[in-house]
Computed example of a mutant assay.
Amino acid sequence: MQFFTSAAILTILCIQTTKKKSLHAVYTRFVASLLGMLYSFIAFETFGYNPYVLVIMILLFIPSIVSIGVTAGFISSAVIMMHIYSEANFTLSLFYNELGLMTVGFGVALLVNLYMGDIQKRLDKYRIEIEELYKTIFSEIYKYLEVGDTDWDGRELIEAEKLLNKAKSLAYIDVENHLTRRENEYYLYFDMRERQLEIIERVLPKITTLPVIVQQAQLVASFMKELSENVHSGNTARTFRDKLDIVKKEFAELPLPETHEKFLAMASLYQFIEEMDEYLEIKQTFKGLKGKK
Rank of each mutant, 00 (worst) to 15 (best):
S169P: 02
Y172V: 11
I173S: 14
D174L: 06
V175E: 10
V175F: 04
E176R: 09
E176H: 05
E176A: 12
N177M: 03
N177I: 04
N177L: 01
H178K: 15
H178P: 05
L179S: 06
T180V: 08
R181W: 08
R181Y: 09
R182N: 14
R182G: 15
R182V: 12
R182I: 14
E183I: 15
E183K: 15
N184S: 06
N184E: 00
E185W: 06
E185D: 11
E185F: 07
Y186V: 02
Y186H: 08
Y186K: 01
Y186S: 02
Y187D: 08
Y189G: 01
F190G: 00
F190H: 00
D191R: 13
M192F: 01
M192L: 07
M192D: 00
R193S: 11
R193H: 06
R193D: 07
E194F: 13
E194H: 11
R195M: 13
R195Y: 01
R195E: 15
R195L: 10
R195K: 15
Q196K: 09
Q196A: 00
Q196D: 07
Q196C: 09
L197P: 02
L197V: 01
E198K: 13
E198N: 09
I199K: 03
I200C: 07
E201T: 12
E201F: 07
E201K: 15
E201H: 09
R202I: 02
V203H: 06
L204G: 00
L204S: 05
L204K: 08
L204N: 05
P205H: 03
K206Y: 13
I207V: 14
I207E: 03
T208G: 03
T208Q: 08
T208W: 11
T209L: 11
T209E: 09
